[in-house]
């Protein structure tokens, strides 16, 4: 299966020795031109090619990783200002803030809305994820792809590395996906949730990253028009307001 190193080296126009040393991590800095040629030789998608360049960036040029930086109050207010489900995530995909509709949509029935959540850990290890997420495998791929990108951006972030190790230890499905090179669809896509009471929620997710920040991510789950998904949010909000009256 796959290509031999010699074939990759030939296709990319580099020597076998040089390619081998890159793969073994024995080359200090790989030029962007070589990375682009390798990506082409391996028929990398644009996202995969971008990931090659991200991984090769020298540590000094990588984003600094202040793990667990608290979210600024104004970022939390930003999440609250969206009418669609919105959350602020750390590089390890811990939810540090989420607006009310996000929490109503995601939280298992009967559990506290403020409970600590990690999107990838919960997806693989929480039984409720198999109830809520309509296409669990699609979500698993997207989660692993997103975590792979974050691990590359924050190679010294202990939370990211700990989470990867925990999931490698505890989930065979995670181990299988982590061994593959998938980075596609890590920042956007269309998914569905099956809320036990409110019904099917079809959404497009997008991620926004404030520039020059601690690596915090704002993620939005926008309902797809014509799918009845806005009504799901309306139902959950009405139910919540009845309960708090």
């Amino acid at each position: 299966p796959g290509l031999r190193r010699q074939e990759v080296a030939d296709l990319a126009g580099v020597s076998l020795d040089y390619y081998t040393r890159i793969e073994q991590g024995r080359v200090g800095e790989v030029s962007p031109a070589v990375l682009t040629a390798l990506g082409r030789a391996l028929r990398a998608t644009p996202e995969e090619s971008a990931h090659l360049h991200r991984l090769a960036a020298s540590p000094a040029r990588r984003r600094s990783s202040r793990a667990q930086a608290p979210a600024r109050p104004s970022l939390l207010a930003l999440a609250d200002s969206f009418a669609v489900p919105a959350a602020v995530l750390t590089p390890s995909l811990d939810v540090v803030a989420a607006n009310l509709v996000w929490r109503l949509l995601i939280t298992p029935p009967g559990q506290s809305l403020t409970r600590d959540k990690n999107l990838v850990r919960d997806h693989f290890l929480e039984p409720y994820a198999r109830v809520l997420v309509a296409d669990w495998s699609l979500g698993a791929r997207a989660g692993v792809a997103g975590l792979r990108v974050q691990a590359a951006l924050h190679p010294h972030d202990e939370r990211v590395q700990q989470l990867v190790q925990e999931l490698l230890d505890r989930s065979e499905e995670f181990r299988r996906l982590w061994s593959m090179p998938d980075v596609d669809g890590s920042t956007h896509g269309r998914h569905r949730l099956l809320h036990p009471r409110a019904g099917q929620y079809t959404y497009d997710y997008e991620t926004l990253q404030p520039p020059g920040d601690e690596g915090l991510i704002v993620t939005l789950f926008s309902p797809v028009p014509g799918t009845g998904s806005q009504e799901v949010l309306d139902t959950l909000l009405a139910e919540h307001h009845r309960g708090t009256e």
Binding site: L3, H51, A151, A152
Partner: peptide, 21 residues
């Protein structure tokens, strides 16, 4: 193994048979 070498190896191992030739 989330580094460049591991990612290249995974891409190389993934390449589908119909691509080779």
């Amino acid at each position: 193994g989330a580094g460049l070498g591991a990612f290249l190896r995974a891409l190389r191992n993934r390449r589908r048979p119909e691509d080779v030739g």
